[in-house]
Design a protein around this nucleic acid. Structure first.
Lengths: 359, 359
DNA sequence: TCTAGCACTCTTTTCCCTCGAGTGCTAATT
DNA sequence: AATTAGCACTCGAGGGAAAAGAGTGCTAGA
């Protein structure tokens, strides 16, 4: 059943006001904004409460949005914000310093997101399986050589190997071709015992080195696929009134700090068509998040990689502002990492869309 | 002026009790432990207060140690604890998984320290300046080559260079020898414009690539010297009664989270002969730490590198327990990274020393 | 259908009182 | 001279009761 226009306006006003003040909102305060008397508002609010969009902390307090109310707000009612010039500039400037190492970049993006939104934030990149494209073995001295592996995602890994015995330049060269023959083009799962064995048999007197380099290879491939989850700004939580209770704050903060726990709660189902996903309170899987909301944006990290940035906050979160900021940052990352300009189709539209008239 | 034996025992008992309970301690509670009447204790405590070792929150409360009292406690009075078998085993097990990458190791050490002590912890390694030992250029295809730099600290850095034009294998080889001639053995500060210029002149038709590789080189050297500061477990603060006030907690947590700020407060003056340093409340430089204490231990990270691990907590901190744990972890790290067994001379002694008889 | 008015509900704030832990001092005791 | 027992005093913490205030629900009238 569709809500009347006025009910929508009332619900929007309640959510906006509650987001801003964290105080239950009463009928009198809304009377002006909506343009009818408080009694009328009371009737309408009473109905909204009955329908499950609002809640009453107790009989004689104002109304507070229920998760369902937030959901409607997020889906239909909220104003799509545009970033201010200053905010957009700040983000662009931060992202402009291209950072070579993906992990450091993620850490910075996490911090940036947290700083912009004033909520704890996380950032990560999911990588598809990779393989080694080519190996190069560099002979340093009789006891030392370097293995350089160029991966399919165009990152380069290396390892310095120190030996307790001497080798010749030629032995290293042999090893080199052997690895190029047997260990290129395979993902970490495809490296089996039997490949290692047969390579060892072919290696002649350097067979002892095969295991070393093979395990290095597997490490590289595994490391390349495990996503380094970056979390930043957890302490921001403490500035939110709902976390003035240190026990609650502690519980949620430890949960957030543990990236692996947070990761379990990530993208089981889909992102919206605009690359955004909002999960509100009880919609979250993790018990620790039942009173919190998560806003998440995805971006194209190039080469088939998908990245996610997100923000955790109280259900009374500034969804509109956060969504705008995340979209903008995600779009920036897509551009930076993948060179695509509107990876999600709507990111930019969202960001650039003129704000609705409001007052 | 030296304190009487009994005053020392009283001060010790006050500190121990306050550390354990966070409650001001009164004369009656101490009477049993010390073995004389509460009136006597009151007299003694009154004198200790006059001397500045104790403080009274208000007239009719018990006594609380002053920073000066903590200082005396740390310097002379406190029991040197030995770790339990279980604790030592836990630390050893964690450290045993040798981690190749120093940054990841530091992150894990930070988490370990925080988990063991129940306080926020940080870990970092200071590196001496490094230079490049040798360059190797790997020709991949006409538009691509890899630069591999072996640094004096035996780490290997690399960079994949993509060109908008084609190069020949020979040009890369030439560049390789050029860099080996001009850019090895110099630290980041010693790379001047003039070296770059003269290399460019010598480079012939590949002069355009010199700048790219030179800047990569400088990045490597700079990155190798900047210490990656790892902070872990900030949310532990919230379990301390003195940080039940969310504003205080927030202020300190944001300070700690910002590694660079914390770093400024690090080792201006020395560590004690046992590799430990304790700074209590107002002794700290940073304003944010005036109500907190920092316990820090240093370790030998090999190759002239020095590392530091530390713990931040309320002035009412379990100095004795934390010191023991930090010492043990630091000793373990020294062994792991430098292969030295008792780098600070006293670390092991401290750890292995039998506890004083107490009780 | 909206509004004005009013009685009612429930939380929050304030104030005051009591309770108790702990002190400081004095006088007695060792 | 040092220690102890005793006692009056101080000050914060805890617990209601009462008042204040905000908001509701309902009814009657426009």
């Amino acid at each position: 059943m569709e809500l009347s226009e006025r009910k929508k306006r009332i619900l929007t006003a309640v959510v906006d006001s509650y987001i801003a003040t964290a105080e239950p909102v009463g009928s009198k305060a809304l009377a002006e904004k909506i343009g009818c008397s408080s009694a009328t508002i009371r009737n309408e609010m009473s109905e909204l409460t009955g329908m499950g969009y609002l809640e009453q902390p107790h009989t004689s307090a104002g109304r507070v949005p229920s998760p369902m109310g937030y959901r409607l707000y997020v889906n239909e009612l909220m104003e799509r914000q545009k970033l201010s010039e200053a905010e957009a500039a700040a983000i662009n400037e931060k992202l402009a310093r291209k950072n070579e190492q993906i992990e450091k970049l993620m850490a910075e993006v996490g911090q940036l997101t947290s700083a912009m939104t004033q909520y704890p934030a996380y950032a990560l990149t999911m990588k598809p399986p990779v393989a080694v494209k080519r190996f190069d073995f560099i002979y340093v001295d009789a006891n030392t050589f370097i293995v350089v592996a160029l991966l399919t995602d165009n990152t380069v890994k290396n390892k310095l190997v120190h030996l307790p015995f001497s080798v010749h330049q030629e032995q290293i060269t042999t090893l080199n071709s052997l690895f190029n023959a047997n260990f290129t083009g395979v993902t970490d799962r495809e490296i089996t015992e039997s490949i290692i064995r047969s390579t060892e048999r072919a290696a002649g007197d350097t067979y002892g080195l095969v295991a070393v380099v093979a395990s290095f290879t597997m490490e590289c491939l595994a490391a390349a696929r495990t996503a380094p989850m970056q979390v930043a700004g957890t302490s921001q939580l403490l500035s939110q009134p709902e976390f003035r209770d240190p026990d609650k704050a502690h519980a949620l903060m430890s949960f957030i700090s543990d990236g692996s726990r947070l990761m379990d709660d990530l993208p089981p189902a889909g992102m919206g068509s605009d690359g955004l996903r909002v999960t509100i309170g009880p919609e979250n899987l993790a018990e620790e998040l039942k009173d919190s909301s998560v806003v998440m944006a995805s971006y194209d990290a190039g080469d088939g990689m998908r990245g996610y940035i997100g923000v955790v906050g109280p259900t009374r979160m500034d969804y509109s502002g956060v969504a705008a900021k995340l979209s903008y940052i995600a779009a920036g990352l897509s551009r930076l990492l993948a060179g695509t300009d509107a990876p999600e189709g709507l990111n930019n539209k969202l960001v650039l869309k003129e704000s609705d008239r409001h007052e």
